[in-house]
C-alpha cells in the first residue's frame, strides 16, 4: 500500500479526533490575533492550565471507563468526597502528600463501589451519579464545621505552584498512559467497548475489568480533589461539582466516541479539556460577558456532540 493512501486511511478513521486538534489550533490562533498576542502570554497560559487541571486529570483517569463504553458521571462526587476524607484523616492538614495518598486510596474504594453498581448490578451511570452526589454532599456537610474545611495555610502555600500541579498531571498521565496503552487493563476495556459479547466469548472477565476501570478513575479523582482543595484553600460540598460535565464535554469535543472502543486515546481527552479552557478563557479576554461564555460553550458542545453521534451512525450503516 502506498504511503499516501495509508495517510488517507488514517485520516478517515480518526476524523473526529483530528478535527479536535485542528479546532484547538484554530482557536489558539484566532484568539491570539483578536487579543493581539495577549492570550499566548506565559501568564495566561499558566492561568489556562491551572483552571483546566482538575478536568485534565479527571479526563485522563476516566479514559478506561470511556473506553469500555460508559461514563463515570459520579466523578464529581468522588473528587469532593475523597478530598474531604483525605483532609479529615490528615492531622492539621499539614502533611499534603499524606492527604494525597489517602484521597487516592479512598477514590479507589468509592469509585470501585460505583463500578460494582455499574458493572455487576448494571445500574445506569446516571443513577450511580445521583447516589454518589447525594451521599457525597451529605458526608462533606457532616465532616465540615460551619466554616468548611480550611486547609492549613502554610502547607497549602508551599505546594500551590504551577510545578506541583504540572508534576501531578504528568505523573497521572504517565501511570494511566502506561496502563492504558501497554497492559491488558487498557486492551480489555477497549475490547469491551468494541463488543462486550465478543470480549466475554474471548475469555475476558468483563465485570472485573470494568470495575478496575472505575477504580483507576477513582485514583485520578482523588488526586484531582486534593489539587483542587490546595488551589482553593478549602473544601466544601461544592468541591468538584460539575467536573463530570466538563469531563464529558472534553471527551466529546476531543472527538472520542462515547461508545468507547479501540480508537479511544488519552491525548484527545487532553486536547478536549485544553480546548474548552482556551475557548472560554479567550472569550473572556475579548470581553465577552462571563455568563454568556457558558452559553457559547454549550453551543460548541452541542455541535461537537451532534457531529460525533452522526458520525457514529454513519459508521454503523457502513
Amino acid at each position: 500500500m502506498k504511503p499516501s493512501s495509508k495517510t488517507r486511511d488514517f485520516i478517515k478513521r480518526n476524523i473526529g479526533q483530528l478535527s479536535a486538534v485542528v479546532a484547538l489550533i484554530i482557536c489558539l490562533v484566532v484568539f491570539a490575533i483578536l487579543t493581539k498576542g495577549r492570550s499566548l502570554s506565559a501568564n495566561n497560559i499558566k492561568t489556562i492550565f491551572l483552571q483546566a487541571i482538575v478536568v485534565i486529570i479527571s479526563a485522563i483517569g476516566t479514559i478506561f471507563v470511556t473506553a469500555h463504553g460508559t461514563q463515570d458521571l459520579s466523578l464529581s462526587a468522588t473528587i469532593g468526597l475523597s478530598a474531604a476524607i483525605g483532609y479529615t484523616l490528615t492531622p492539621d492538614s499539614a502533611d499534603i502528600p499524606r492527604m494525597f495518598v489517602i484521597a487516592m486510596l479512598f477514590g479507589i474504594l468509592f469509585s470501585g463501589f460505583i463500578g460494582v453498581l455499574s458493572a455487576n448490578l448494571n445500574v445506569p451511570a446516571i443513577f450511580c451519579a445521583i447516589v454518589g452526589m447525594s451521599v457525597g454532599t451529605k458526608v462533606i456537610q457532616l465532616l465540615s464545621s460551619t466554616n468548611g474545611l480550611i486547609i492549613n495555610y502554610a502547607a497549602a502555600a508551599s505546594y500551590d505552584n504551577i510545578y506541583f500541579y504540572l508534576g501531578i498531571a504528568v505523573a497521572i498521565l504517565l501511570v494511566m498512559g502506561y496502563i492504558f496503552n501497554f497492559t491488558r487493563i487498557g486492551m480489555y476495556n477497549k475490547a469491551i467497548g468494541e463488543n462486550i459479547t465478543c470480549a466475554k466469548f474471548t475469555g475476558i472477565n468483563d465485570v472485573k475489568y470494568r470495575i478496575i476501570a472505575y477504580m483507576l478513575s477513582g485514583i485520578a479523582s482523588g488526586a484531582a480533589g486534593v489539587a483542587r482543595a490546595i488551589r482553593a484553600g478549602s473544601i466544601s460540598s461544592t468541591t468538584g461539582s460539575g467536573a463530570h460535565i466538563n469531563v464529558m464535554m472534553a471527551i466529546i469535543i476531543g472527538g472520542i466516541a462515547i461508545t468507547g472502543g479501540s480508537r479511544t486515546r488519552i491525548v484527545y481527552a487532553i486536547v478536549g479539556a485544553i480546548f474548552l479552557q482556551v475557548f472560554s478563557n479567550g472569550l473572556v479576554m475579548i470581553g465577552m460577558n462571563p455568563s454568556l461564555v457558558g452559553l457559547v460553550k454549550g453551543i460548541v458542545f452541542l455541535a461537537a456532540a451532534t457531529l460525533s453521534f452522526n458520525g457514529m451512525k454513519k459508521d454503523i450503516l457502513i
Binding site: 486492551m187 475490547a191 468494541e194 465478543c198 470480549a199 474471548t202
Partner: peptide
C-alpha cells in the same frame, strides 16, 4: 459478526485479543 469479532476494530486488535497472557 456479533459474538466473535470486534467489527470496527483492526485485524491486528482482533487477532491479538485472546493472547494477552502470552504477550504480557
Amino acid at each position: 459478526d456479533k459474538e466473535s469479532l470486534m467489527m470496527n476494530a483492526s485485524v491486528k486488535d482482533n487477532v491479538a485479543l485472546a493472547s494477552a497472557d502470552k504477550l504480557a
